[in-house]
Amino acid sequence: MARSTSKDAQALFQSLRSAYVATPSSLKIIDLYVCFAVFTAIIQVVYMAVVGSFPFNSFLSGVLSCVGTAVLAVCLRIQVNKENKEFKDLPPERAFADFVLCNLVLHLVIMNFLG
């Protein structure tokens, strides 16, 4: 039983990797960016847990900035992914412009909130 599950898991990883290798490199860059943003958010949460959340607005804006960037990047990734049929008629340039606009709003708000 245990052996079969581990074998299954191995096969799963294998197929996951092979599937992921096939994705275009632009999407991989976005993935890296998302991972980086999430990682930064986690570091901040850990720091908050260790040191304390005193300037709460700073903590909040830091974490939400990271989470927000990650979320927006995921949205961009969804939109520029060629395999998504829903966004066939959305040119990637338009998607990127929307992404930049959304990021601008997000970081204007964060700068305002940072205090």
């Binding site: 927000g68 949205c75 997000l106 708000v109």
Partner: peptide, 20 residues
């Protein structure tokens, strides 16, 4: 994925804007 795009940015941006 449209649902994701409609909801996830709204929560992050909305929460930040609300706390302003």
């Amino acid at each position: 994925s449209r649902l994701y795009i409609a909801y996830a940015p709204l929560v992050v941006l909305g929460t930040l804007l609300a706390s302003l």
